[in-house]
Computed example of a mutant assay.
Amino acid sequence: MSEKLNLLGYSVFDGILDNYPLSGKVLINTINPHSYCVAEKDEVFRSALKSSDILLPDGIGIVLAARFLKAKQIRKIAGADLHQFCLEKANAEGKKVFYLGASQNTLDKITERLKQDYPNLSVQSFSPPYKTIFSDDENKTMIEKVNAFEPDFLFIGMTAPKQEKWVFEHKDKLNASVISSIGAVFDFYAGTVKRPHPFWIKIGLEWLIRFVKEPKRLAQRNLVSMPKFIWVVLKTKITGQP
């Protein structure tokens, strides 16, 4: 079975995915320093993260915070790692996967790659409108598309916190077993955005390479959220309260 580490008010996954029984409906989300800071100001997002059955430590900052505050060694498990794990399981067992989010071009590229990488799984997808808030009819259509396929694995890629909040609101209506919000992984797997080399991932500097490549888009994450997160960790160490 898995273990959960109480870290800064969140139950962060501290275990091995292979040992977790993915039966029934399982909601998987990720947390990193930026999403932690966003959730501090967004009650719905905070509730969405806390409702996770598995909340993965997707960020070297979370891993280091666990070591600094709890003297606990946990492994970073990124959305891309979760995605690969689920695909391998789905392929081995002949399961069904569904991708909800991103552009049709990205979804087409994902489908083509899946045919080569994981030929034993079944896949469908749907590209919703690109907008901040969906109408009731749009939400209904998205849910119907998913439920008509009844996927074993449902991947949501609408960027955080929109994707987590959408799942939090509609999860009870979704006829899917494992539901995970993995955002940028759609683009990584489609090849429309290149993930940093495994060397940088292994030494914990994936965030830096991504920031160098996309400084404008990731400025808030790295120049605002990261210092705030470090301050929260230091304050927690001193006072015992985040």
Rank of each mutant, 00 (worst) to 15 (best):
Q163E: 15
V26R: 10
F45K: 09
I28H: 05
G101P: 02
E150Y: 06
L107W: 08
D108I: 00
D42Y: 12
F126W: 03
I77Q: 03
Q116K: 12
F98A: 03
A92C: 11
D117P: 07
K41N: 15
L69P: 10
E112L: 07
S135C: 10
N147A: 05
F155I: 03
K72S: 09
N32Q: 09
K131Y: 02
V63Y: 02
A71E: 01
G61S: 05
I62N: 08
I110F: 01
A90M: 07
F155R: 02
L27K: 13
R67Y: 12
F153A: 00
R113T: 01
F153S: 04
R67T: 00
Q84V: 12
E40C: 09
F134R: 05
K95F: 07
T106R: 02
C86W: 03
A90Q: 03
E93N: 12
G101M: 03
L55A: 15
A78N: 10
I77L: 06
C37Q: 06
G101I: 02
A66T: 05
Y99A: 00
A39H: 09
K96I: 03
A160C: 07
Y130G: 10
I74K: 01
F149G: 02
I54S: 08
A148T: 14
L49V: 13
L154K: 07
L87K: 08
L100A: 06
L64I: 09
D81H: 13
L154M: 09
Q104A: 06
A80D: 11
S52E: 11
E164S: 08
K50A: 15
E144T: 05
L82I: 02
G59S: 13
P161V: 02
K89M: 12
I77W: 04
E138D: 15
A148C: 14
L114W: 01
D137G: 10
V97M: 03
L69I: 09
I133P: 00
G94M: 01
H34V: 06
R75I: 00
K76N: 14
R46S: 10
F155V: 01
L49Y: 13
W166S: 06
E43R: 12
P128F: 00
K72R: 15
N139P: 15
G79W: 02
K162Q: 14
D136I: 02
P161S: 04
Q163Y: 13
F126Y: 13
E144P: 04
A92R: 12
S127G: 08
L107M: 12
A48Q: 11
I62A: 08
F149T: 04
M158S: 13
I133Y: 09
M142Q: 15
L114F: 03
V97I: 09
D53P: 15
A48F: 11
F149H: 07
P33Y: 10
Q104D: 14
F85P: 09
S103K: 09
G61D: 08
Y118S: 02
Q163A: 14
R113I: 01
I110V: 13
G61L: 02
F85A: 11
F155K: 07
D53L: 15
V146M: 10
